[in-house]
């Protein structure tokens, strides 16, 4: 008798989920209107500037006055905490974008693996987090033009390392940051890896330093910063992947995407980008 009740409960939950699904289906078909009641898709865009982009429709498209950047501030030098304030190359770029579209600016700091979910659920408006463009991510979001070339590298202990190249990774204890391209690389390319997925790359580095892991696979720049702060660790001179960082936006925000691309071009042309690269110790050769 109790079992039937249990079964009924499970069915009720299944029904609720289906109801949500149906609701979602209807929702996307509703005509989009913003706060002013203007349909942004067919909105008037006669007010175009030199780059062919008018910043004003972005606020209209988003239906608010604050542009929210989503990031994971554990990724020096792109985004990190300096006395509790979030700073970095990506943060300054994002601020420039907010200025460009004449909106207020705010940052949401969250787990890296939650960024795309948060973007698509509207909690943030763009992901600026040293996020590499991948096929899987492109299915969910749109990416701006790439702004930095990146690679996954291997961090090992200076002494007693059991890994000397990517060929040695098989069967080893490897630390990664959950949901990053390093995580996916190891999962798909390394046989029998004992994969340890941390929420923060720094926690993986701590476990590497105290000998619990054989290697950590991480983006090159943050890896170099971690090694610079930890005498016991070093980075192997081998790039596991070729990647490009870009800014992610929702698929239904074409105006924002245009504005971001125009702003990135603007930063490059005015020399502001080179200034930022230099300020954060990044190589101009890897910028694009």
């Amino acid at each position: 008798m109790k079992m039937t009740k249990l079964l009924a409960l499970v069915l009720v939950i299944a029904l609720a989920v289906c109801a949500f699904a149906a609701c979602g289906g209807n929702d996307t078909e509703e005509p989009k209107t913003n706060l002013e009641g203007v349909n942004p898709d067919t909105g008037d865009d006669s007010n175009v500037n030199v780059d062919g982009v008018d910043p004003a429709p972005v606020a209209t498209e988003l239906g608010k006055t604050t542009l929210v950047m989503g990031t994971n501030a554990e990724f020096e030098p792109f985004e990190y905490r300096d006395n509790d304030e979030i700073v970095g190359y990506d943060v300054e770029t994002a601020k420039a974008i907010a200025d460009f579209v004449d909106m207020d600016f705010d940052i949401e700091d969250m787990a890296f693996d939650s960024l795309i979910t948060a973007l698509n659920s509207g909690q943030i408006d763009m992901v600026v987090a040293g996020m590499s463009v991948t096929e899987e991510r492109l299915e969910e979001v749109n990416f701006s033009n790439p702004y930095y070339r990146a690679a996954q590298v291997i961090i090992v202990p200076k002494e007693g390392a059991t890994v000397a190249s990517s060929a040695d990774l098989a069967g080893k204890k490897i630390g990664v940051q959950e949901g990053t391209t390093g995580d996916i690389y190891v999962e798909e390319n390394v046989e029998n890896a004992d994969l340890n997925r941390f929420k923060k790359a720094v926690d993986a580095a701590i476990d590497l330093a105290n000998g619990r892991l054989d290697a950590v696979v991480l983006d090159e720049q943050p890896a170099l910063r971690i090694v610079a702060q930890n005498d016991a660790l070093t980075v192997l001179d081998e790039a596991l992947t070729e990647e490009e960082y870009a800014i992610a936006v929702r698929k239904d925000n074409p105006e924002l995407l245009n504005a971001i691309n125009a702003c990135l071009d603007d930063l490059a042309e005015t020399g502001k980008k080179d200034e930022l690269l230099e300020k954060y110790g990044l190589s101009v050769d890897d910028a694009e």
Partner: peptide
């Protein structure tokens, strides 16, 4: 509210 509706819209792609 918009956010909630967007969450639901994830289910726009069929449940299956």
């Amino acid at each position: 509210m918009n956010g909630i509706l967007l969450w639901f819209s994830e289910f726009g792609a069929s449940f299956a």
